[in-house]
Amino acid sequence: MFDGPEPIYLQIAQMIRAQVLAGETAEEEQVMSTTELATTFRINPATAAKAFGQLVDEGVLYKRRGLGMFVAPGARERLLARYRARFFDEVLAPALAQAAVLDIPTAQIVDYVLGRDGPDGGVDGVAPTSGSPTGTPV
């Protein structure tokens, strides 16, 4: 857990974003407190608080005084919009650039994408493994 190169608080924030995106934590649902987060993962509470701070700034979480942290209304939509916007820049564009270097015709790529959409489409083991929404935020 949290072995990536980024600061731990960023990794925690990313974990919570992923939970919201995946719908594991519903909007208006309470998330763990700083203390719970710190004790669960045995991390410094300040690190946990920093992660929450970032998510509050992003509008993913909001604080109810005396009650704790809750998922903000519309948080999932905002995250979806953000990651959709990034998907083309950060995932697809580099992949297409790589394809151009490798001289893969656009038609083949289109076929591949369309094939995947079909009921029996997709090639086992070739499906992209990186570029999931939990990938690399900046």
Partner: peptide
């Protein structure tokens, strides 16, 4: 460690 983190947080 758990007790330390929990009590420190509070």
């Amino acid at each position: 460690y758990d007790a330390l983190v929990a009590d420190y947080a509070e």
